[in-house]
Design a protein around this nucleic acid. Structure first.
Lengths: 142, 142
DNA sequence: CTTGTTGTAACCGCGGTTGGTACATTGCTA
DNA sequence: TAGCAATGTACCAACCGCGGTTACAACAAG
């Protein structure tokens, strides 16, 4: 199982916005042509980022901008915005272990602690990288 | 996107094997009844663990055992064995960014480094927990 | 009112996961 | 050597999330 490409697409979109917002109106069509996906995919994505307070989208007139300074937007923020992390988190637990078995009865409690630590480690690393960092790297190459 | 339940089921199975192997023959049916899934699911899983050198499965006579000391089997080993981590790793990159766009041209190189660090952080945490650790916790509760 | 754009619903196809049946194969033992 | 218990595996079906696409209503500005 992989984390869906929505995540990398979202980061790509944010970099696009910051890279071009002074030169042109950054529309979903424009972003879509850079990412090379259907514009509707981008619009759906922007809606999720908007709900998370990461971007602003101008209806009617068109165009997108970030809703807060990009050195305050981490990869973790983007991940949480676009990935369905609703319940259970990163790991999917099997639902109905046998309660009559000493292993089945306790596996959930035992593993949950460990899995949580693993997820936390990942989130900590994600939270340490901002869109500003990624933008800087991109400008260096471009 | 979540990591498939194969992972937690695999850990559950390994704990079962260690917990009961001195008392009885640990068959796929027995494990299946503790996990509460179809025995075939367990057999498929055991094949993956076997290929990874984690367990031995006795054909014909039946039964399962670990192939090496369980304090040398980490959650990362199990994860790599049962999860399809073939290419690309944890993150799924969008394939065809526009090479004519300075963002599309460089996003892959820029993000890959960061994503790799995140995955490494997760793997490091996974590698620090052994089946022995989980077994100890389980015995404490049982 | 026209134009360009966003917001969203509806539907499709693909692939991965999970669950299940069936059966050949195998090793042990009576 | 026949029978039993178990594994190994092929095949099928249902489901779900994702990405692709079309279509169209809602909206802002010239």
């Amino acid at each position: 199982m992989q984390i869906s490409s929505r995540f990398t697409i979202a980061v790509h979109a944010l970099i696009c916005i910051e890279m071009f917002k002074n030169d042109r109106k950054v529309t979903s069509d424009f972003i879509a042509s850079s990412v090379n996906v259907n514009p509707v995919v981008i619009r759906r994505l922007l809606q999720q980022l908007k709900k998370a307070g990461i971007v602003q989208v101008m209806r009617g007139s068109g165009g997108t901008d970030t809703a807060r300074p990009i050195d305050e937007i981490t990869l973790l923020d983007v991940y949480n915005a676009v990935e369905c992390v609703d319940e259970g988190g990163l790991f999917h637990f099997h639902e109905n272990p046998n309660q009559l078995c000493p292993v089945g009865r306790n596996i959930h409690a035992v593993l949950d602690v460990r899995l949580d630590e693993i997820q936390k480690a990942m989130e900590k690393e994600m939270g340490s990288v901002t869109i500003q960092d990624v933008l800087n790297d991109t400008k260096r190459l471009a």
